[in-house]
Design a protein around this nucleic acid. Structure first.
Length: 212
DNA sequence: TCCATTTGACCTTT
DNA sequence: AAAGGTCAAATGGA
């Protein structure tokens, strides 16, 4: 159905479309009669859509590049690590992508979903950080050999910000909210349901803004 | 019963 | 040795 368009592009379009909708909504709420809170929330939504779209673009960029560039917050990494050991080590901290910031207007649920299905496999307290770092790998790691992973850590400076680092590229081709045949059971079907539920909630939120 | 999360132990890197 | 990263048993929810 949507074979010509990748999952990232599809999600990207959704994000941009959502951002446009929220912007239109904000325009309607520019009247002095509207509450400043509503405007603020809408503003947050718009920024979130931008952030997510940018994150997706970042991901795509790394997928194109065979050699992910590396910069982590704390490590200066000015040595020659780029030249040596590039493919040797199983993993180092330098395997992670550039930091991507994601705002969290939906702070009730924690960090925003980036559209992929992640499975949490660990959490660590990081020295000098107020918040623990969570480690995720792609849900399809073993079923499809997808090696993508990500770290999520709440920012010390701004706890509403979640710092997300990605690693690897998604090798999984079964994307949750693309078409799933009724034959598909269990995991994939459930994933699809989850994503659909999120989209539904998003639409409902839009509606609730429109109505009040 | 299946699957995701939690969390302490263990492994790797610096 | 210490900090970061991963494993895997225990736990809990649907």
């Amino acid at each position: 159905m949507e074979k010509t368009m990748g999952w990232e592009q599809n999600t990207l379009l959704n994000e941009l479309a959502q951002g446009r909708d929220f912007t239109n909504m904000l325009r309607k709420h520019l009247h002095p009669s509207s509450s400043p809170e509503t405007r603020q929330v809408l503003l947050d939504k718009i920024l979130c859509s931008y952030d997510k779209a940018l994150s997706l673009l970042n991901c795509s960029r790394f997928m194109v590049e065979t050699k992910p560039r590396v910069r982590t917050l704390g490590s200066p990494e000015n040595d020659a690590s780029d030249n040596k050991d590039m493919f040797k080590k199983r993993k180092t901290s330098s395997g992670w992508s550039e930091q991507i910031r994601v705002c969290s207007a939906m702070s009730l649920e924690g960090p925003l979903d980036d559209g992929y299905c992640w499975r949490k496999y660990g959490q660590k307290d990081i020295l000098g950080s107020n918040f623990p770092r969570a480690y995720y790998r792609c849900t399809h790691r073993y079923s499809q050999g997808c090696l993508a992973g990500k770290q999520v850590q709440r920012s010390d400076e701004d706890p509403t910000i979640f710092e997300v680092k990605y690693r690897g590229r998604h090798a999984c081709n079964q994307v949750p909210h693309l078409v799933a045949t009724p034959k598909e059971k269990g995991n994939h079907y459930r994933e699809k349901q989850q994503v659909e539920e999120k989209q539904k909630q998003s639409k409902e939120m839009l509606l609730s803004f429109e109505t009040g």
